[in-house]
């Protein structure tokens, strides 16, 4: 309870930050953290709680971004309607792709999701409606410069709050328990009367819906999108790394992960213009080696076991 209180007060403080600083660069950076928090929390629903490690979740982000862009620039729909439609399209795509692919397990599921994401990227690069590799411009928001930064910060914050609220309710209820049961042992879950296909598809769609919303926000914020950056596999990798780093299958874990990884990335890219991605690679390698169970696990156990925690972790997983 104490821990939750602390977290909630941090979140409140965080949500007031546009009033505490007039530094637009900082607000933009915090918005990026929020976008990645949405993405990582969405990944956590299918990868963390349900146990299906998707390596293609960026496809929902991309579909959300493209749907929003196309709707806004071609049909004249407003941002919010377009964003929500973008989320719904991403969710439907998740459902459609999930039905055949969620039957696969482990590596095969990982590769299939990766393959779908790459295939959709290639398709977007070749379609007329998406304007191929030349990209799409979105109508700019009609606001003051400072207003724009605050606007995106709060839109993202609201979507994240909604996602966290939904997730916390779901995982206190049957839906959440059944997803965990599927993760822990799918055969047993099935025999106990859980329609695993429906539950997995629902989890995947939910994951897709919120990733799609994040994509819509991103597109409108950028004002211009191209296939390569919005379908970049590195975004999926970041979602996974953030979830793992923060602690899989926990509500606030992905947020902690997003905050840490984005801060490290930002720090690296401001000090090493060219090499920052290289360092990101090193961070990922070190994190997997030393903290495969996430940061919370380290904090809990390092007090009890000291440095032997790391040795034990490695002993457990090596041959």
């Amino acid at each position: 309870m104490k821990k939750n209180l602390l977290l909630i007060s941090i979140l409140i403080l965080f949500s007031l930050s546009p009033f505490l600083t007039s530094n637009n660069f900082l607000i933009r950076f915090l918005t990026d953290i929020l976008i990645f928090s949405i993405l990582a929390s969405s990944w956590n629903i299918i990868g963390g709680y349900t146990g299906y490690a998707s390596f293609g979740n960026v496809v929902f982000f991309g579909i959300g971004a493209y749907s929003t862009s196309i709707l806004m620039s071609n049909t004249g729909l407003g941002f919010f309607v377009s964003m929500i439609l973008g989320g719904i399209i991403a969710a439907l795509f998740a459902l459609l792709m999930g039905l055949p692919i969620l039957r696969l397990k482990g590596h095969y599921f990982a590769i299939a999701t990766l393959g779908v994401a790459e295939a959709i990227k290639a398709l977007v690069q070749n379609l007329n409606i998406t304007e191929g590799n030349s990209g799409i411009y979105l109508p700019p928001p009609e606001m003051s410069v400072d207003g724009i930064y605050t606007f995106f910060f709060y839109v993202t914050l609201i979507v994240l709050a909604l996602l966290l609220f939904l997730t916390s309710i779901i995982f206190k209820n049957k839906f959440g328990y059944n997803l965990k049961a599927i993760r822990e042992n799918e055969d047993s879950a099935n025999s106990m009367g859980i329609n695993t296909t429906i539950y997995k598809s629902a989890a995947f769609s939910l994951s897709g819906f919120f990733s799609g919303l994040a994509g819509g926000i991103y597109a409108f914020q950028q004002g211009f999108i191209k296939p390569e950056p919005v379908f970049n596999v590195l975004i999926t990798i970041k979602m996974i790394v953030m979830s793992v780093f923060g602690g899989l299958g926990s509500l606030f874990g992905p947020l902690i992960g997003a905050f840490t990884i984005e801060t490290i990335s930002e720090f690296l890219s401001s000090y090493f213009l060219v090499a920052h991605t290289l360092f990101l690679g090193i961070v990922i390698i070190l994190m997997i080696l030393f903290a495969p169970k996430g940061m919370l696990d380290i904090f809990i156990n390092i007090r009890k076991k000291g440095l032997s925690y790391f040795r034990k972790n490695i002993e457990e997983h090596r041959v």
Partner: peptide, 20 residues
């Protein structure tokens, strides 16, 4: 060092190596 961890852990590790 992580060969027995869950499969997506080794996958992510390999991604880290690739990025590097």
């Amino acid at each position: 060092l992580v060969i027995r961890a869950e499969i997506f852990i080794t996958l992510i590790l390999a991604f880290g190596i690739e990025i590097f």
